[in-house]
Design a protein around this nucleic acid. Structure first.
Length: 416
RNA sequence: CGGGGUGUGGCGCAGUUGGUUAGCGCGCCGCGUUUGGGACGCGGAGGUCGGAGGUUCAAGUCCUCUCACCCCGACCA
């Protein structure tokens, strides 16, 4: 994409109404636009990051047998009444609206009930199980107070997966598979060494649920971390009994702040019974389906990554989710320079490399400052100077020194 | 929801004890000189001060109400 065509502009200073680093940088660089408190639009650059994150999550969910679908944002009252979660004293984040005939509707803050109700239409026999479905959907939550930029909004994108299993054994096996898939996701987006399976409150059915907590001061949670065992306990359930139960040593636990990027939990048969989701087994007995739920806050994840991978100049995207892999900067507008830069842009693009081409002919300082702010992993410069040397200049966003390399060398670097 | 704070051109800010044509930087438009880390000169456009009501000869400056936004706390399958 040519930067001269991109409608967004970079901002020199952060908007005064944002404290959170992720929001400041993402707004300044043109990834997101704030519509109101806790509600952000995703601009062309932002979408590319979001889609990259989704692609990774999608691949890992598909790899463990997840089937993608999209549920609706408008939801029926009766479903939520069956599980006693329609009442605002039970769920305080509801946004609700009405049809013109006055029928009350809920706006999706979660999809557990509708999706499970829907599955009743497709699950009736043991032959129909297991079934694991997931979606990327917008959740609307009327938070009392949104904060931390895109890390905690009122409107956000979540990947939510639901597993439907024959029995606890089948469920447990999938639960473990999903845990591993989640770890792969966080590893691939660049948070592998900072993200830990964390034991948290389990609710009515199980003792624990499992959170995936990424260590960062920007997080809202406090966890107690055993770095060797790569396990942590959320402060919500942190006590001697739990430490002992998990076989951890209190002396080795470190108190750190973390952001919850994923959460998985078991429902057992409670929800299936409430919503009447059952199957007939081989012997003709009717049995409730065992349910699990697995969430990853996609937009929050983007915020956490922005927060962690940044320096005083701007964003520093991990390669896997960067909006482009190359920021090509043309310095000068002599015919030969334009020709050479255009040629390289086409060459890279045709090779399948995502290039953001700064063809604006600004002063170098501005182009470089924008490149640093936007945070694309590779910066390539074409100028009269590089042409005279019959080379080009390459610098990684994570490094300070630029290097003069050949086009062939660049291709090799980018293709690996 | 409790507490604290902030709303002045697109963005960041300044506006003395209320006083007449509301400033500055960035950005924007035009012309020219510049061009490897956010250039410079000259000339322009753009705000009625979050909103409503009030006090006053006079309100961006004072009062009341209200809305929005930020932070702390509470909340957060």
């Amino acid at each position: 994409m040519r930067l001269s065509h991109l409608f967004t502009k970079t901002l020199r200073s952060a908007p005064a109404d944002e404290q959170a680093l992720n929001a400041q940088l993402l707004i300044r660089a043109g990834y997101i636009y704030k519509e109101m408190a806790g509600v952000y639009a995703y601009l062309p650059l932002g979408i590319r990051v979001l889609e990259n994150i989704k692609r990774i999550v999608r691949e890992e969910m598909n790899a463990i047998g997840g089937q993608e679908l999209i549920m609706t944002n408008l939801q029926r009252q009766d479903l939520w009444e069956k599980t006693d979660r329609w009442d605002e004293s039970k769920v305080d984040v509801w946004f609700k609206t009405k049809l013109q005939n006055n029928t009350e509707l809920g706006l999706a803050w979660s999809h557990e009930e509708p999706i499970t109700d829907m599955m009743r239409n497709y699950i009736s026999s043991y032959r129909d199980l297991p079934a694991n479905v997931y979606q990327f959907q917008t959740k609307l939550r009327n938070e009392l107070r949104s904060k931390s930029g895109i890390m905690r909004g009122r409107e956000f994108v979540m990947k939510d997966m639901y597993s439907y299993s024959l029995d606890n054994e089948q469920h447990e096996a999938f639960y473990e598979t999903a845990t591993q898939a989640y770890l792969k996701v966080f590893d691939r987006v660049g948070l592998g060494d900072k993200t830990f399976v964390t034991y948290s409150s389990g609710g009515a059915f199980t003792k624990f649920s499992h959170e995936f907590q990424t260590v960062t001061d920007a997080g809202e949670d406090v966890i107690y971390l055993d770095e060797e065992k790569k396990m942590a306990i959320n402060e919500e359930v942190y006590n001697d009994e739990v430490i002992k139960h998990l076989g951890l040593d209190k002396a080795k636990l470190k108190e750190v702040k973390a952001a919850e990027v994923g959460n998985i939990f078991s429902f057992g048969s409670i929800k299936s019974e409430q919503l009447d989701l059952a199957y007939t087994d081989k012997d003709g007995h009717k049995k409730p389906v065992i349910l699990g739920s697995y969430g990853i806050g996609i937009t929050r994840l983007m915020g956490v990554i922005a927060e962690i991978f940044a320096d005083h100049k701007g964003l520093v995207w991990p390669e896997a989710i960067a909006p482009f892999s190359v920021n090509l900067i043309r310095i000068g507008d002599s015919d030969k320079t334009v020709k050479a830069a255009d040629r390289l842009y086409n060459l890279l693009t045709e090779a399948g490399i995502a290039v953001l081409y700064d063809d604006r002919n600004l002063r170098v300082g501005e182009s470089f400052a924008d490149a640093d702010l936007i945070g694309i992993p590779n910066r390539v410069v074409i100028s009269d100077k590089t042409i005279a040397q019959n080379n080009l200049e390459w610098k990684k966003r994570t490094e300070n020194e630029a290097r003069s390399i050949s086009e062939q060398e660049l291709l090799k670097i980018l293709e690996r």
